[in-house]
Computed example of a mutant assay.
Amino acid sequence: MSINSTDFKINDAYSLQGKTAIVTGGSTGLGLAITRCLVSAGAKVVVVSFETEAQAESSLAEFGSQAVFYQFDITKTDQAGQLVNKIIAEQGQISILINNAGNHCKKFIWDMSVADYSRVLEVHLIGAFALTKALVPHLKTFREGSIVFMASMTSYIGQPQVSGYSTAKAGYLGLVHTLTAELAEFGIRVNAIAPGWIDTPMFRQATDNDSERLAKIMGRIPAKKVGNPMDVGMCAAFLCSEAASYINGACIPVDGGALIGF
């Protein structure tokens, strides 16, 4: 598709028809919203999650054959190559990878063990690196691809009790920059999304009985509202589409302006 062609239609630029994506953690929370948006744009989604197939079945049922599930522990980095080869053998060419899997350990640094810290890095940063490394040779062969890392406001700002999480999320920015420099010539784009406060069960659990905390959060958001998971999903679908073909090495905040709020 050429944007200079006389028959250009802007809707075509946002289509993911014929693309197959891997989405880690794609059956719950923000990952499920990303799966929903990619499928809506025409992609087939390979959901990779630590959940069992039975646990993921109900949340993915709405997508029919457009979403398939692979159970995998992303911290088993020595098996990432086997997983990618299995997926490609069974599902065909992969052109999109969304690194969304994660966990959380909320402790002050003096209470957080080295094992706690390492575990968070293994899931977020090292696991994502291993899966990306395993897929890159395939993307280079076809000279196209889009890789998206799920960053965070903690990639930029300090928050207490999330030292492992913030280290991993800040690390994504370094990966995005380096991978862009290494892979752009092969037609592979690498970007990130930094969600702000999004209306998820985790957010409600943290704020429903803490009016002071909720007021502090809302006071920081210029939009005066929290986001919808679909806001993040739509951003992911955009970044993977031809409409974002010249966006590379970027991290897009989806936060209602929270990063610049005061």
Rank of each mutant, 00 (worst) to 15 (best):
K133H: 13
S152M: 00
P253K: 07
I22F: 00
I22D: 04
V232P: 01
P137N: 10
D231V: 07
S166F: 04
L131C: 08
V23T: 04
F63E: 00
A21Y: 06
K140L: 04
P222W: 06
K76D: 15
L125I: 09
C105Y: 11
S211P: 07
S95V: 06
K216V: 12
D199N: 13
N85Q: 15
S65K: 15
G187P: 03
I3W: 14
A56N: 01
Y172D: 04
A61K: 15
E62I: 02
G219T: 11
Y165I: 08
D255W: 05
Y14L: 14
Q159I: 15
G171N: 07
T154H: 10
A54N: 10
S166Y: 05
G256H: 02
T6A: 14
G256T: 07
D208C: 13
A236T: 04
R119N: 14
S211H: 12
S211Y: 10
S65G: 12
S152I: 04
D78Q: 13
G92D: 11
D78C: 08
D73T: 09
T35M: 03
R204F: 08
R213Y: 15
G102D: 06
R189F: 02
I198R: 05
N4E: 15
K106W: 11
I98P: 01
V84D: 00
T6H: 14
S95C: 12
M218V: 06
G164N: 06
G29R: 04
G42T: 00
A192G: 13
I260E: 12
L38K: 02
V148D: 03
P222D: 05
Q205Y: 13
R189T: 06
V123R: 06
A244S: 10
D210G: 04
N209S: 15
I94P: 01
I157N: 14
S113D: 09
S95G: 12
L214R: 10
G31Q: 00
A258M: 15
V114A: 11
S27F: 03
E242G: 09
V120Q: 02
I217H: 07
A243L: 11
V254Q: 10
V46T: 01
K140P: 05
F8Y: 15
V114K: 07
L173D: 02
L175W: 05
A237F: 00
S245L: 14
F186W: 14
S58I: 01
C235Q: 12
A13R: 10
P160C: 09
P222F: 03
V136T: 02
L139E: 02
N191M: 03
V84L: 07
G42N: 04
L214I: 08
G219E: 10
T52G: 06
K44I: 03
Y117Q: 07
H138E: 12
I252D: 08
Y172F: 15
D73V: 07
A192H: 01
E242Q: 14
M234N: 15
G227E: 00
R119C: 11
C240L: 07
I34A: 03
R119Y: 12
T52W: 00
T24I: 04
R36T: 07
T75M: 09
S95R: 08
T200A: 11
K169I: 07
